[in-house]
Amino acid sequence: MESGKKMRITAAQVCDVGKRPTQEDSWCISDISDTEKLEACGLFAVVADGMGGLASGDLVSACVVNSLAASFEAKESIDSPVDDLYDMLQQCSSNVNEMLGPDGVKQSGSTVIVALVHKDMLYWAAVGDSHICLYRNGVLTLLNQEHNYGLELDRCAVSGKISFDDAQLSIHRKELVSYMGMGELKHIDRNIRPFPLHSGDKVILMTDGVYTTLSDAELAAVLNKNVYDAAELLQAGIYEKDVAHQDNYTAIILGV
């Protein structure tokens, strides 16, 4: 990172229904042209994936994005990004639970990835199995853990409670164990210290419709371009794969 010289942020996004009948992903990016807001609060981005197996996933993902966007919009400054992001996420969770009502909690849900780039630092919070990744020097690094049953099993294996082989064998590994709309959140993945960004870094927020179709190597090849070209190439890459039943897919690409 060049000392004393603030990095310029760019952003692009892609969002498509894929081959599904409805779109259950939602997203937002704060206004990058609002330089005052950018200076005081940073750039804010959210991606959310309504859980298709549950009812009204689209409504929940929209509620997630709208709630977080409203919280960010109401901020005049962000002085404690780690705490502010956590509070916004908890407020969002309350709003979703309120929308669902006591009979709707755990009947519907959404993942969420929220990212804030502020004073050349990255902050994120994630619930569910959407991904936030850092692209740096040609290498893609996953920042968040997927909140699925596989994570719980792997943790048991690491602590010696079960074998690693047994952890891998479960057919329930992909089932989500933490998501917006479950009531009290079980897991939140977030950084508690600032993560410095370097000039040339890209950050990508994406739903599973992206990373289950494109490999890490394919994503890294796309992210080697500027964010606008990267977004176009990402969409073209998914289209070319022509996956049967291609899921909704959404990606926000931030560049510094």
Partner: peptide
């Protein structure tokens, strides 16, 4: 680096990284 930024203590840091190793 990423896992360090998420960790409250050394034990948690090791756990995050061990999960990556195991996967």
């Amino acid at each position: 680096l990423v896992d360090l930024c998420k960790s409250e203590n050394p034990k948690q840091w090791l756990e995050f990284m061990r999960l990556r190793l195991q996967q």
